[in-house]
């Protein structure tokens, strides 16, 4: 299936991250993003799936140049599903400490504001301009 090859070329895997092909099925079935994938698949040459990585990269580079809007829409779609894929989120969490859970309901811990932080700016004179208080 060309979708796997397409997505593996857009988002190659490495030692930590899986390749983009893992979201191919979900992307094809997505109500908003599916058409973006289909639009680019329709433009791929028939031998794309079996081409070597360099040829695939060159093909997609040319396609992006010829159809920037459609290609850009696919990138947004692919990145959106890839970076919300549970396996990818787990990798990001392991590498950065970013929580794999949604932002809510846990939220994130942060040290509270410390008023000592403003010692220098608070000592400055007024920066705003005086104005006439009454209208002419």
């Amino acid at each position: 299936m060309s979708a796997f090859a397409l997505l593996d070329t857009l988002i190659p895997g490495d030692a930590d991250f899986p390749a983009g092909g893992r979201i191919a099925t979900a992307l094809a079935a997505h109500d908003r993003f599916g058409p973006q994938l289909a639009a680019i698949l329709d433009l791929l040459p028939p031998n794309f799936r079996d081409a070597d990585p360099d040829t695939r990269f060159a093909t997609l580079t040319a396609l992006e140049s010829a159809h920037p809007e459609a290609f850009g829409a696919l990138i947004v779609a692919a990145y959106s599903l890839y970076y919300t894929d549970p396996a990818v989120i787990r990798v990001i969490g392991r590498l950065t400490g970013h929580s794999a859970a949604p932002p809510q309901p846990q939220g994130h811990a942060l040290p509270p504001f410390d008023p000592a932080m403003v010692a220098i700016p608070a000592a400055r004179p007024p920066l705003y301009r005086p104005t006439p208080k009454a209208n002419p």
């Binding site: 070329t9 857009l10 988002i11 190659p12 990269f57 997609l60 990138i75 947004v76 692919a78 990145y79 959106s80 890839y82 970076y83 919300t84 990818v88 989120i89 990001i92 970013h98 932002p103």
Partner: peptide, 17 residues
């Protein structure tokens, strides 16, 4: 977040490939 970083906004989109 991860998607916002990848698709860009504050910075250009993270290049594909």
């Amino acid at each position: 977040g991860p998607v916002g970083t990848a698709v860009g906004g504050y910075l250009p989109r993270v290049p594909w490939g």
